[in-house]
């Protein structure tokens, strides 16, 4: 029986929800097609994390544990994954789409002679490979693609599937791995702006996004206050990350992160397709913009036409009330 292998992304010792989404999908496919759903954790604390993963139902959990995985580096990760693929001979390896997995997808495919599909929003097994859907043209349309190869690697957009728990008697299997520092082809000098313990945008239930309309300290304060009332993650349009107002890791859109929260509130954002491409799958979209013709209103469920400086204070106040009534 061949294996569907899910790579588990770990962030500061925490499993990323998006990789659980992928695992849940693989579990489902394994059941349908009578295959094995396995997961692999490559981390310095892999064995610890494996225990937590059991609640999500993979039949086998492979672990590769090594201090070199403390930070993301493509050379050791590629080596580890190559090793695992050789051993497990999976039919597919599925990843949640993150900067780290996107970093190695192409090189791994090249090294293994495998087919690869990046950033899919849906996938299923076809007779000989994988069929998938991918948003293209800045997510204006969806393309159906097929990869027919004995090994298919794919990354999946966050928010594409629901996470299901399913306690399993997973076997944990360690794959021996060693790595010498002189194998490192590139060296990490420094991590500059760790966006560390802040709410991870791509996993947040509520996202507040600030755009060029948020002009000053006062505007940013309002955004922060709203975020704290709603316990939301703060993101931004490229106009503001480019200007250095918000950390670049907070950029939402084609170049930045894809978010699919329950609630997205865009503040002073025009709604250029490159931004919309990263947030159009949010469940409820609210937009605050003073220009009634701003394109973001074409996709907003609730469009507030008005000056954000006038709209936000009563909005925040009312939300506080709503919260306190609960």
């Amino acid at each position: 029986m061949s294996t569907l292998l899910t790579y588990i992304s770990v962030n500061n010792g925490k499993i990323k929800r998006s990789s659980l989404e992928v695992l849940s999908r693989c579990n489902e496919l394994a059941q349908q097609h009578n295959l094995i759903s396995a997961a692999i954790i490559i981390d310095k604390n892999a064995s610890e994390i494996a225990e937590k993963l059991k609640a999500y139902g993979p039949s086998v959990i492979y672990i590769i544990e090594n201090p070199v995985f403390n930070n993301h580096l493509n050379t050791p990760l590629l080596k580890a994954l190559s090793l695992a693929i050789e051993k497990i001979k999976p039919k597919i390896v599925a990843f949640a789409s993150t900067e780290s997995t996107k970093d190695i997808l192409g090189a791994l495919a090249a090294n293994r002679g495998a087919a690869s599909l990046a950033d899919v929003s849906e996938f299923e097994l076809s007779g000989t490979g994988v069929k998938a859907k991918r948003p293209v043209m800045a997510s204006k349309i969806i393309s159906s693609v097929e990869a027919n190869d004995s090994l298919v690697l794919l990354t999946v957009r966050s928010g594409s599937y629901d996470v299901s728990t399913q306690q399993a008697d997973s076997n944990i299997e360690e794959i021996p791995f060693s790595f010498n520092d002189d194998e490192l082809k590139i060296t990490l000098k420094e991590i500059i702006s760790a966006s560390g313990d802040k709410i991870d945008l791509s996993e947040a239930e509520t996202v507040i996004a600030a755009g060029r309309g948020v002009k000053d300290e006062e505007g940013r304060k309002l955004v922060e206050e709203l975020a704290s009332v709603l316990k939301a993650g703060i993101g931004a349009s490229r106009a503001l990350t480019e200007a250095g107002v918000y950390d670049p890791s907070l950029q939402i859109g084609q170049t930045g992160k894809v978010v699919s929260p329950q609630l997205y509130i865009g503040i002073g954002i025009s709604g250029a397709i490159q931004h919309v491409s990263g947030m159009a799958n949010s469940k409820v979209i609210v937009a605050i913009n003073k220009d009634p013709d701003a394109p973001i209103f074409d996709i907003a469920d609730y469009g507030i036409v008005g000056d954000l400086y006038k709209v936000l204070p009563p909005f925040i106040e009312e939300l506080k009330k709503v919260k306190s009534e609960k």
Binding site: K131, P135, I142, F297, I299, G303, G306, K310, V311
Partner: peptide, 26 residues
């Protein structure tokens, strides 16, 4: 290694309701 089978329109998000008026109220 990969083949495009076709394209489909992404189901458009309907524009919802626009609120225009007294900022405090809306």
């Amino acid at each position: 290694k990969t083949k495009i089978l076709g394209y489909e329109v992404k189901p458009a998000r309907e524009a919802g309701k626009k609120f225009d008026g007294e900022p405090d109220e809306i």
